[in-house]
Amino acid sequence: MPAKVLAQRFALLALASAAVALLILSKTHSDATERIRTAIVDTVATVLNVLSQPVDALNQAVAEFDRFWFTYTENERLREEIDRLRRWQMVARGLEQQNAALRALTGLRAEALPSFISARVIGDSGGPFVRTMLVNAGERSGVAKGQAVVTGVGLVGRIAEVGDRSARLLLLIDLNSRVPVVIESSRHRAVLAGDNSERPRLIFLPPSAQVAPGDRIVTSGHGGVFPAGLPVGTVTAVSDGDIRVQPFVDWDRLEYVSVVRFDLPRLDASDIEVRRLP
C-alpha cells in the first residue's frame, strides 16, 4: 500500500474519531462544547451583524409594500380594533383602581417588575432538528442563560447559550423546550413541550382540567425562570391526550426581540422582621 493512501486512511480515522469524540463530549459535558461554540459564534456574530442588515432592510421593504397595498382594509380593521380597545381601556382603568385598593387593603407585596433588553435577530440557522436563533446581545448587555425572550405578541423562547456580544435563543417549539404555563381562564397548570413541530404540545395537565380550542395559554412563573403572565399561544386542537398550542409569535417575522431580565422577589430582611412579630 503506498504511503499516501495509508496517510489518507489515517487522517480519515483520526478526523472521524475526533468528530465522534466531539459528539460524545457535547452530550456528556455540554458546558465545555458550549464554551467553544459561544466563543466562535461571538466572533462570527460581528460578521452576521453586518450581513443581516441588508437582509433586514429588504424584509422591511417587502413589509412596507405589503402595508401600502392593504392600507384600506387595514384601516377598517384598525378602526374596529380601536373601538374594541376603547371599551377595554375603560374596563382596565376600573380594574386598575380596584386592584390598587385591594392591594392596599391586604398589604400584598408588589412583584418585581421585569426590565427588557432589546436585541436584533442576526442568525436563523437551526436546521431540520433544532429550532434556535442568534441575537446580537450577550453578557455585556446583561443577557444571561435561562432568561425569557418575548416580542410584542408573546413568548419566543429562552436564552440557551450566552457569549460576550451574542446569545443563542432556544425557540419554544424546539425539542428541548419546556415552559411552565397555565390556562389563562381556568388557571390549570401544565407544561408546554416543544417537539420541533409548529405547534408544541401541552403536557402534565391535570386529568380533571377542562381545555378547549381557543383557550389562551400564558406562562405560570413556576420554577422561577420566567415571569408569570407572558402570553404564549392559544389551544388549537384537543384530541385524547394530545393538546396542541399555536404560539402567538410568527417565527418568520422575528426581527427584534426583547430579553426579559427578571429577578424573582426574594425574601429580604423586612420579610423576616414581619414574621418575628407576635
Binding site: 466531539l22 459528539l23 442568534l134
Partner: peptide
C-alpha cells in the same frame, strides 16, 4: 455548520468527513 446551527457538536463534521 455545527457551531452555527446549535445542534449536536461534531454531527456535520462527521458527516462531511
Amino acid at each position: 455548520v455545527d457551531v452555527l446551527s446549535g445542534g449536536p457538536m461534531g454531527l456535520m463534521a462527521l458527516v462531511l468527513v
